Simulated scan of single mutants.
Amino acid sequence: MVSRSIPNGLTIAGSDPSGGAGLQADIKTFSALGVYATNVITAVIAQNTRGVAAVEPVSVAMIRAQLDNLLDDVEIDAVKIGMVASRDVAETIAEALTRRRPRWIVLDPVMVAKSGDRLVDDDGLRAVREVLVPLADVITPNLPEAAALLGTDMPVTLADMAAMVGDLAALGAPYGLLKGGHLPLDRCPDLLWMPGGTRWLDAPRLPTHNLHGAGCALSSAIAAHLAHLAPPQSPQTEVEMAIDAAKRWLHRALEASERLDVGQGKGPPHHFHAWW
């Protein structure tokens, strides 16, 4: 049970110098939603709103040292895991979080940037599937990520999405949100799976290109809302409440993104739309 008035969140992710995705997006999201943000960096990425220029993974030893020193000192209520580039890193994260299990773990299986640049090699992909997905309470793949996890073609219809969910759930995460924004529709249909079944969550498609880091923001918003929740709610009720609230928050952040002027490519959501 969360005993503090301000819960603590942890993001384990790669960096983004432009501030729209990765570690920086997670910290902004936690902060905007009233969660104290801590972080462990897994990779230094040279990127901007137009694309990724270079990726330099942080050593496994340094990632382990970051995790051990942080978790020895700070009680974490919810964790968001983003970019993980190798099996060694995935196993190091899993070992640390298993020893000091937080109430909630949200995994965003980041593999491809919005620009289309691949961020994770084949071994890293297998590690995400085999090591981190079973560790997570909630996973939030988009359609390309879901196809990569399952080794299948990307869904192109709502029926394809629905058919994919059973195989995704079988990977081991009890809750998941399959994000359907890549479908060529006038809305963005997401499909939530949970032990009791599935539920469609639709949102209108907004006329904006400012989607840089939107997936990072959604997954960290889910973690933030979960960090604020404590029993006696049931886990399924808590997850549904957190996902509904996170989707509403991201929708408003995307609506407000035109107030920002960041870069010449795909801009970020406005994480602090309620504050600035």
Rank of each mutant, 00 (worst) to 15 (best):
H182V: 02
V52R: 14
A65H: 08
A274K: 14
I27R: 01
T208R: 00
P141K: 10
L185E: 00
G267Y: 08
L178R: 11
V40Y: 00
V239D: 04
Q233N: 15
L135M: 15
E130V: 01
G267L: 10
I139S: 03
L158H: 05
D137N: 12
V79C: 02
V165Q: 04
D137K: 06
V79D: 11
S257G: 05
S5I: 05
D88V: 03
G213N: 08
P109E: 04
V131K: 09
G181K: 07
D123K: 10
P174V: 11
Q47D: 04
A147Q: 07
A274Y: 01
G180D: 01
A214V: 15
L183D: 00
M1E: 07
E255M: 13
R248D: 09
A147S: 06
H209G: 02
A78P: 06
I27T: 06
D123Y: 12
N8C: 11
L70F: 04
L71R: 09
P204Y: 00
M1G: 13
A227Y: 03
A78F: 04
I63T: 12
N210T: 09
D88P: 03
P57A: 11
A242S: 06
S220C: 09
S220I: 03
L183N: 00
S234L: 15
V79P: 06
S86K: 09
L177S: 13
S15E: 10
A96E: 12
R64T: 13
H212C: 12
D167Q: 14
R187K: 15
V106R: 14
M1C: 04
N8K: 04
R50S: 13
E75F: 14
W104L: 01
P174H: 11
A147F: 14
D123S: 15
L107C: 07
R87G: 11
A223L: 08
S115L: 08
H182W: 02
M83P: 11
A227P: 02
R100H: 09
L171I: 10
L67V: 05
Q66D: 00
P269R: 05
D117G: 02
I12L: 01
R129A: 11
K247E: 06
D16K: 07
E91V: 15
G172V: 07
G19S: 06
I243P: 05
A230H: 12
R4H: 07
M1P: 12
F30Y: 14
D68Y: 02
A54L: 11
M241A: 11
H251K: 12
L229D: 15
G265V: 10
L70C: 01
V74K: 05
A163Y: 02
L132F: 10
S86V: 10
T237A: 12
T198Y: 08
A203T: 03
L206W: 03
P235N: 09
G34W: 00
A53L: 12
R87V: 10
